[in-house]
């Protein structure tokens, strides 16, 4: 397998996910299969090929610096799991 369960641990941590051992094994197997398939890309010579991040030939799309009304705060906060004092409430961050 290309991806070991320990590596899945690292990727999961980077992705902010926790996985059970069973999931770890499953994802290790699946990711390995997918990457194995993707490995065929390495056969292609792309040394002189520019990457394409955008298919569009667009450039310089901007807007003018103009203030428009913001969202009403009650509406902004209406989807929040926890709210206090007009703010989004989260567990305390210790630094």
């Amino acid at each position: 397998m290309r991806i070991k369960p320990e590596e899945v641990d690292y990727i999961a941590a980077l992705s902010r996910l926790v996985l059970s051992d069973q999931e770890k094994n499953m994802y290790a197997r699946h990711l390995s299969e997918i990457l194995e398939h993707a490995e065929r890309l390495s056969e292609l010579d792309t040394d002189d090929v520019e990457p394409t991040a955008h298919v569009l030939p667009l450039k310089n799309v901007f807007r003018d610096d103009q203030v428009k009304p913001s969202l009403e705060r009650d509406i902004l906060l209406s989807n929040a799991p926890e709210v206090e004092n007009g703010c989004f409430k989260v567990p305390r961050i210790v630094e």
């Binding site: 996910l17 999931e23 993707a38 990457p51 991040a53």
Partner: peptide, 28 residues
């Protein structure tokens, strides 16, 4: 979750060139 992990892996340091960047070149 599977796709998030695949994508995170493809962008992570050490694998970016082999997977993500390679894919963008193949896109070309």
């Amino acid at each position: 979750k599977r796709r998030i992990m695949l994508g995170t892996y493809a962008l992570s340091s050490g694998y970016y060139d082999a997977y993500y960047l390679k894919a963008l070149k193949v896109r070309t």
